[in-house]
Design a protein around this nucleic acid. Structure first.
Lengths: 227, 227
DNA sequence: TTTTTCATGATAGTATTACTATTACGAATA
DNA sequence: TATTCGTAATAGTAATACTATCATGAAAAA
């Protein structure tokens, strides 16, 4: 049984967390602790306590918690891109392809997405991404982070989706705008369904899963826009 | 010449900031300082220094900076709703109405939106809303804040827009989802154009303003979806 | 085997943040 | 004249976001 490794470039960290047990522990525990506490309440001190290490040791891997969040979300997007490649490379038809992509983005078919990854709790990570990922760019440090190339993976994913959209309708003028809007909406609508239900028709009370409902919404939306 | 007052309910504050000079100063200066520093770097201490008052005095008006941000964004949405009412009450046709609403949301026609409001710099406030408003709900305190009714104004606006959409096509299944997605997208796309241009076709380099481009994108999107 | 390197742990320290509490002052009101 | 009330001044606390130093123990190099 083989295992996949998502490799994250060195600009994302001071010391590669995949290179040591402590590092793997930091990544693994930070996903769960950030899920539990939320980004604001999450601190390196609490993380150190959880993994029985020290603040100083964690700082050797990541400059600060924002950089750690950027690392975690990048890991998630790299993983999503891997799953997309894996599950769409054999599909010729772009319409079929985009359906599969939206499915993956919306986290429908959990069983297929949740391939066994050592030390990674995809469900935790997904909740972190839904609730916290926007904070990677909604900060005065956006330009700095962006100049360091730390949004490259997300941009690449957005572009990949935009290319499929262009394949369906080469005359559509907003492929990237729609791709980024859809990526954001896939999180927002799930979040709203849970916390601010009057902002969406997607409902936790339906007998269809929230993920499936968001998929239906985005699928319908995408195809209507491309006509 | 008359002046309009946007009245914000008492659950949003400890002491009504509109009831004193100090209060008005807090609101007015916090918009500008939060615009300058961003939510994370903004503190009550810095705000107190700016207005030559004290931390303790500001705490008498607002519990903490998250509540202040909720107040500011609520003020913004109440203002947007006022402008929508003012500029669409005479329009019968729902299609025409939604165009006007999207225009207002996207901040096209600055001159009309920027009615003189004492102590309020709408441009500053708008930038704060674009960059920081999502943080009002992307926190572990969402449910608490929501239970206090502090998202009512935003929800009301979303519902108002959804009703107009339903007026255009009573069979469309996602009026609220589309309204919330559009409200979010109107900020995101403008933000992306400025900081992460590869995520959108909206460009600062065009000779059409970013606001107008976002308007065109949302207008096209809305009408395609309602067919 | 000894030495060097290196990762981590232990400990401590600093400036800042997010508050809370107490008291005092000065203006308006009773 | 006394009282109330809003604000300022000051101080204090626990926690945060780091930085720095040094000890230790294991692995790698000599």
């Amino acid at each position: 049984m083989s295992t996949i490794a998502i490799v994250i470039g060195e600009k994302y960290y001071n010391k590669d967390p995949q290179s040591s047990d402590l590092g793997k522990n930091i990544v693994s525990a930070s996903m769960e602790l950030m899920d539990e506490l939320g980004f604001e309440q999450f601190t390196f001190r609490k993380l150190a306590e959880r993994i029985k290490s020290t603040e100083a040791s964690i700082y050797r891997y990541f400059d600060n918690k924002l950089k750690l969040l950027v690392y975690l979300t990048t890991w998630y997007w790299a993983w999503i891109e891997y799953v997309i490649d894996f599950r769409t490379h054999h599909i010729q038809d772009d319409e079929e392809k985009i359906r599969e992509i939206i499915k993956i983005i919306c986290h429908v078919d959990r069983d297929v997405i949740d391939i066994d990854l050592p030390g990674i709790n995809i469900s935790s990570l997904r909740r972190v991404v839904v609730s916290e990922s926007d904070k990677t760019y909604l900060t005065k440090q956006v330009d700095e982070i962006n100049n360091q190339g730390l949004f490259k993976v997300f941009k690449g994913l957005c572009h990949k989706i935009a290319m499929v959209l262009t394949g369906i309708n080469p005359n559509y003028r907003y492929p990237h705008a729609i791709a980024s809007t859809m990526l954001e909406a896939s999180h927002q609508q799930a979040f709203f369904a849970q916390h601010l239900p009057s902002l969406t028709e997607v409902s936790e009370k339906s007998n269809i899963s929230v993920e499936k409902q968001v998929y239906c919404f985005l699928e319908e939306t995408t195809f209507k826009l491309l006509k």
